Amino acid sequence: MAEKIIAVSAGREITETEFNEFLSKLPEQQQAYVATEEGRKQALTQYANYFLFEKLGYDKKYDQDEAFIATMEAVKRELLGQYALTQEIKDIQATQEECEAYYNEHKAMFVKEAKATAKHILTETEEESKKVLEEIESGAKTFEDAAKEYSKCPSKAQGGSLGTFGRGQMVKEFDEAVFTAEVGKIIGPVKTDFGYHLICVDELTGGEQSEFAEVYPQIMQQLTTEAQNKKYMEVRQAMIEKYGLEFK
């Protein structure tokens, strides 16, 4: 089936396939616009203009200007260098066996981040904290109501809720108490530099080992990148030994 011709610029036929390829290489922020009818028409005009001005360049022999030739040489040097490197590393990819071995040797790296969802009540003294705890345990007040009434932390407006946070985000004493707590059980008073806390952990997640299948893509990318970088350095060193490199 013959290619659909959508424009002819300076005698150059522009096919729908090549134009779509041109569109696909535009920056991501332009993709939504060129997907519209108006945007597509404007992009086609831009693409057609390349051939008009290319023709102008040949007509006026701008392609023979020294400045143009120097620019083309610089562009060629950069593109050829990039292409050569790409060719050298294109077939380098970590194997599944290598990834599995890395996973088994570095399992500690693939433990899911521990997170907690908790609420607290902050008081200035231990006595105040114990008194609030008694009220909650007696059923006189819920934890949330007690937080709104007694807590010195801005979280009191949310019933003491601190939302969800990861291990190490809170001060040491608070962090250790939360991540060793029994879910749903009030603990404290816990002393920190801020005062005394009553803490209730609503949920604890993470801390377990990730399965190999979960982290395989991550390991594959890491090992492949490392192998490609190693190849790059080997090729570079070989070229230096063959042709030399000296900084003045």
Score class of each variant (00 low, 15 high):
Y58A: 11
A118F: 14
T142V: 07
G11Q: 14
E149M: 07
I187D: 08
E149W: 01
F174I: 01
V178S: 00
V183I: 13
A35R: 15
E127M: 06
A238F: 02
T86S: 15
K248E: 09
A94C: 12
A35E: 11
Q221N: 15
E66D: 14
T95D: 11
Q87P: 05
E246K: 14
G160T: 04
A146K: 07
V8P: 08
Q222W: 05
C99V: 13
I92N: 02
K90L: 14
G81M: 07
R40Q: 15
R12T: 14
T205I: 11
Q228K: 14
Q82A: 15
V8W: 01
K242H: 00
M170Q: 03
E126C: 07
S9I: 06
E246A: 10
Q96R: 13
V132P: 01
L122C: 09
L26C: 02
E38S: 13
T164I: 02
A43I: 02
E28R: 11
Q228H: 01
T71K: 06
D65Q: 14
I240F: 10
G39K: 02
K41G: 00
Q46L: 04
G11N: 11
A101I: 12
T17C: 03
F110C: 03
V235R: 15
L26Q: 15
D145E: 10
G207C: 02
A213F: 02
G184H: 08
K119R: 09
K248D: 10
L52A: 00
E28A: 15
D63L: 06
D175S: 05
L133D: 03
V178K: 00
V235Y: 13
N49G: 11
G39H: 02
I6W: 10
E241Y: 10
Y150N: 06
Y232E: 10
Y103H: 06
P154M: 04
Q222A: 13
K112E: 08
Q93A: 14
F110E: 05
S9P: 08
T225N: 15
E54L: 13
Q82H: 13
E211T: 06
A10V: 08
E88V: 10
V171F: 05
T71D: 09
C99H: 01
K60V: 13
T180S: 13
E144S: 12
G11A: 05
E176S: 02
T71A: 10
C153D: 08
L133S: 08
K115H: 11
Y243T: 03
K55L: 05
D65W: 10
S155G: 03
T225Q: 09
E13M: 09
H197G: 03
I5H: 06
F179V: 03
F19P: 06
Q169V: 14
A84N: 09
I219T: 12
T164N: 02
K231P: 01
Q96P: 04
F110G: 09
I199Y: 04
